[in-house]
């Protein structure tokens, strides 16, 4: 079962993130997309296919062409709550803009906000982050 979903338009970061996650835990299941659209398409397909599940952790780049990270988060809101409540989104950005950070806090399924590159310490933090107790 895939534990991580990587979304970044920059192939280098996909390689970097995958490598470091694999180094930390070679068994980790990883699915990666270089566009948010492709990621959404996969997620939709996954819901229809009852055999598969969404990865628990989504590492999402903000700045991407055509559909950026926030557009992706908006689309994500349209999915069933049961699915959404099972994921943790972590924002990955090279931006230093505080506005992005504030904007990210509006989404309850966003758990943290990291500045690239992904480090071993960040992976440990992600691993130790537990799913929220959702109240209906």
């Amino acid at each position: 079962m895939n534990k991580y979903m990587l979304i970044d338009d920059d192939d280098f970061f996909l390689i970097l993130n995958k490598d470091i996650l694999t180094l930390t835990n070679p068994e980790t299941g990883i699915v990666q997309f270089n566009s948010a659209i492709a990621a959404l398409e996969w997620m939709e397909k996954t819901i229809q296919d009852h055999e598969k599940e969404w990865p628990e952790n989504i590492l999402l780049d903000i700045r991407m062409p055509f559909m950026n990270g926030f557009d992706f988060l908006e689309k994500l809101k349209e999915f069933p709550l049961t699915n959404i409540r099972k994921i943790k989104v972590f924002m990955m950005t090279s931006s230093l803009d505080e506005r992005d950070f504030i904007k990210a806090q509006n989404y309850p399924f966003v758990y943290n906000y990291f500045t690239k590159p992904l480090t071993i310490e960040m992976i440990e933090e992600i691993e130790s982050t537990e799913l929220k107790e959702w109240n209906d």
Partner: peptide, 24 residues
């Protein structure tokens, strides 16, 4: 400024990430 800082930082941050991997 937003875009440039991002676009200039991106390769730099990628380099940092690679350096980190090399150091492992």
């Amino acid at each position: 400024v937003y875009s440039v800082s991002h676009d200039l930082r991106s390769p730099l941050l990628a380099i940092l990430g690679m350096v980190q991997l090399i150091n492992i």
